[in-house]
């Protein structure tokens, strides 16, 4: 299983792998918001938690269709299906690789962008923790969505339509935790609930993803 993870990471970091695109997208979305809503520091500071969360969610969405599409086209997926690697494990490794190449850099970049949006100083720690806990769930849910649409040509738009509603709970708890942190309230509840969602996603969605992949390979 580690071999699959390492291969996916290597592919992502090589030329044409698309690493960094999500990060650049995140930056651009966050930079565009003040042009849309005006430069008042107070307003920006108030909406910063939500914007950072929505932007990182969209950036994670951007690279989802690469998770399985390339492996499906070049036949790797069929070969993996007949290998000793269980599909469930492959699904989890795929999600993990997506998180390391997308979710983790987004998490690390978010405080810098929070600075641009004058995020309240108390909220930085919670921003970091909430993204760290929440972005793995985004990757795992997205991997499930990618598996559902892998057989569909130009499935990118459909993938967004399927995955975005599934992102709602994670987004709510994530942004809420940061907002509570910014207001000086206790965000532990939101963080715990989000950690629960992430744990649940990694416990259950690999099975759904593997089932869906097998159906699509038939």
């Amino acid at each position: 299983m580690i071999a699959l993870l390492l291969r996916d990471l290597r592919l992502a970091f090589r030329a044409g792998g698309g690493f960094g695109l999500g990060l650049a997208f995140f930056l651009i979305v966050v930079v565009l918001v003040p042009f849309g809503v005006g430069p008042e520091t107070e307003l920006l500071s108030r909406i910063a938690p939500g914007i950072l969360w929505v932007a990182s969610l969209l950036a994670a969405l951007l690279s989802l269709d690469r998770i399985f599409a390339l492996d499906f086209e070049d036949g790797s997926l069929s070969l993996l299906a007949t290998s000793p690697l269980p599909m469930e494990g492959a699904a989890m490794m795929k999600a993990l690789a997506h998180w390391i190449t997308t979710g983790l850099p987004l998490t690390l970049a978010a405080p810098a962008l929070g600075f641009l949006l004058s995020l309240a100083p108390e909220a930085y720690a919670y921003l970091l923790v909430s993204l760290l806990l929440g972005t793995p769930a985004l990757s795992m849910i997205g991997t499930f969505g990618a598996a559902l649409t892998v057989g569909i040509r130009r499935g990118g738009l459909l993938l967004s339509l399927l995955v975005l509603p599934l992102y709602v709970p994670t987004l709510i708890f994530g942004a809420e935790a940061v907002r509570r942190g910014a207001d000086g309230l206790d965000p532990t509840g939101a963080l715990m609930l989000m950690a629960g969602i992430t744990a649940g996603c990694f416990a259950l969605l690999p099975f759904a993803t593997a089932a869906v992949l097998r159906i699509n390979l038939r």
């Binding site: 509603p165 709602v168 709970p169 709510i172 509840g189 969602i197």
Partner: peptide
Amino acid sequence: FAILSRYAVLFW
């Protein structure tokens, strides 16, 4: 996820 969303929204 619909059930999760329902509780998340109540929380929110």
